[in-house]
Design a protein around this nucleic acid. Structure first.
Length: 544
RNA sequence: GGUCUGUUGGUGAAGUGGCUUAACACACUGCCCUCUCAAGGCAGCAUUCACGGAUUCGAAUUCCGUACAGACUACCA
């Protein structure tokens, strides 16, 4: 085809496109950036739900943009209309807001580089496609699914590279007449790029996380526009990241193999390429095998899981931070008063293999997180959780604010804050026994142990709610010696035969009779919260 | 099948040629302490970095091969 024919073809295929490439380029001028500032983007597909990998990705984009004084924007990649799920974009937005990962611009706010939704950028993509058509760098391909399938099977059989390239690209040099004939028959078509690639050549990806990776040059005439007129991911992201002046593309490492395609598209289009940072997927160990976290098998894959499980967003972020840079954990231990944003995150410190998603670690981070909060803060946040997920307990908390805070405050302020709370759910679990209604209903409490009731009843005769902690302890000590229990564990250990048990045994008995649990914070404080009458009632209740 | 990536203790991992007798955290075990449990403190927990070879005075760190695992190989992203 000569130039005139190519123009005719371009007008035939895209008659409505009249804007030129130069005009569109002028609409997206370069950003004014400080030295070293990064422009990143979170580019999810609205296909239903946010998973933890999405969140990690957004978190990375956010961190690196904010720490370099750059820009972080959100772009919705919705070019696959079949997978589009109603309201998925809303969910993405809510999650970002919930986690405080706020973009500077994008689909949920505004910005000068929009629209930030790919389906609304169809004209832009087609402007570039028309330009490629005019320059003979792309062509319409009329091959049917069956034909493509046949080619692939042949290639598999002969162990050749799979795809449309070389002599398999039969429509590459169709004449204008032949194309017109197809069109007049109403044949559907896609637009493919004319790959100038050489199978024997290699390209190097200078990955910010993984270092240099050598890959074979792309030889495939990749589809850039689908039959519905929308671009493929490969084409759309290259155009968008160019026009939106993205400096670093942060994405999952499943994209590494297609990097040569992206590089080639950039070269054909004459774009300067962004830098790339490919991070390793989150994995899970199962039966000794490592695998990617999956939607169907792993509830913790979905971000909503953390909300429902009562895991605070801050704890999830701290967890992600330790996954992103493992030296973060050590730093945070020494700088717990600082924000995670004060930590110098780096691409080079990111794990290159798969990262195991360790829920035990998360649990530990949660405990530490809660141990650093004030009782009032836990109360307020917990209240919000129960309002959403447990109306009954929400009402109880609301009606007993002081009591709950008083309970949460036990052993909280000091060098060794307690670590019994890992999730908002644990608030109920740990403090239900301070409420009579919940205590007597609770079927999980320990009520099988043998208890010396004489001793407990005698203790109640001397117990007073106004005792100081020392007085309280002295009374128990006295009780212990009167009943041949050792006054201290040490004493008991020295001569165990002399005693029935030691003071700890008495405390323990008292603990589970009164709370139904074997582990609680400071017993003295709990007894005080309950009050003498209630303690007596519970001892009687247990006795029966 | 092809291309690329990875493989360090019970777990997550640090580590890119000598300061590593392999950091740190979690888990586990023991001891101590405190009014019990928990928490906390202390100690223990890989003579060794998948395996085999090579380079080097010296390798977990570089190279080659083997094994295993993962990702990709769509008109999905």
């Amino acid at each position: 085809m000569n130039e005139e024919e190519r123009r005719e073809l371009a007008d035939l295929l895209l008659p409505n496109i009249t804007t030129t490439r130069d005009e569109i380029e002028a609409r997206y001028p370069a950003r004014k950036l400080k030295e070293g500032a990064k422009v990143t983007r979170f580019a999810p597909s609205p296909t239903g739900f946010m998973h933890i990998g999405n969140l990690e990705s957004a978190f990375l984009d956010y961190i690196f943009a904010i720490q370099s004084d750059g820009y972080f924007y959100v772009r919705l990649e919705d070019t696959d209309q079949e997978r589009y799920v109603e309201k998925a974009d809303q969910l993405i937005q809510e999650t970002l807001v919930n986690y405080g990962i706020m973009p500077n611009e994008g689909a949920f706010s505004s910005g000068e580089y929009g629209p930030y939704v790919q389906s609304k950028r169809q004209e832009i993509y087609q402007i570039y496609i028309k330009d490629l058509l005019i320059h003979g760098l792309a062509y319409p391909c009329f091959m049917s699914k069956e034909e493509l399938q046949e080619i692939r099977e042949g290639q598999e059989l002969r162990k050749e590279a799979i795809g449309v390239y070389g002599h398999y690209a039969v429509d590459r040099d169709l004449s204008l007449e032949e194309i017109k004939k197809h069109l007049s028959q109403g044949d559907s078509y896609v637009i493919r790029i004319k790959s100038p690639g050489d199978m024997n050549k290699q390209v190097i990806l200078h990955d910010l996380i993984k270092g240099d990776i050598t890959l074979p040059e792309n030889i495939i005439d990749e589809v850039i526009m689908k039959k519905d007129g929308l671009p493929t991911y490969h084409f759309a992201h290259v155009i968008d990241d160019h026009l939106m002046h993205t400096t670093v593309v942060i994405r999952g490492d499943e994209w590494i193999p297609s990097y040569p395609k992206h590089l080639q598209l950039c070269q054909i289009l004459g774009f300067k390429t962004s830098k790339y940072a490919h991070y390793a997927p989150l994995t899970k160990k199962e039966n000794g095998n490592v695998r990617k976290l999956s939607k169907r098998k792993d509830p913790e894959f979905s971000v909503s899981y953390y909300d429902e499980a009562g895991i605070p967003v801050e704890a999830v972020k701290l967890f992600l931070a330790t996954i992103i840079n493992t030296n973060f954990e050590e730093w945070y231990l020494q700088n717990s008063d600082k924000s995670y944003l004060d930590f110098p995150f780096s691409f080079k410190k990111m794990p290159t293999g798969g990262t195991l998603f360790d829920t035990e670690k998360l649990n530990n981070i949660c405990r530490t997180y809660f141990s650093r909060l004030k009782a009032e803060e836990i109360y307020d946040d917990g209240l919000k959780f129960y309002q959403k997920y447990d109306e009954e307990f929400y009402q109880i908390m609301l009606a007993n604010k002081e009591k709950v805070i008083c309970f949460l405050d036990i052993e909280r302020n000091g060098k060794r804050p307690r670590k019994d709370i890992a999730t908002y759910k644990d608030i109920k679990k740990e403090c239900s026994y301070i409420f009579s209604d919940l205590f007597y209903q609770d079927e999980t409490s320990v009520r099988e142990k043998e208890v010396d009731f004489d001793l407990l009843n005698q203790y109640m005769e001397v117990y007073s709610d106004s005792d100081s902690q020392d007085e309280w302890y002295q009374k128990i000590q006295l009780l212990a010696s009167n009943h041949s229990y050792a006054k201290s564990v040490k004493e008991y250990k020295n001569t165990p035969d002399v005693y029935k048990g030691h003071i700890g045994d008495i405390c323990e008995a008292l603990r589970y009779v009164v709370t139904g649990k074997t582990q609680t914070p400071n017993l003295y404080d709990i007894l005080k919260i309950l009050g003498k009458d209630e303690i007596k009632k519970r001892i009687n209740f247990y006795q029966k």
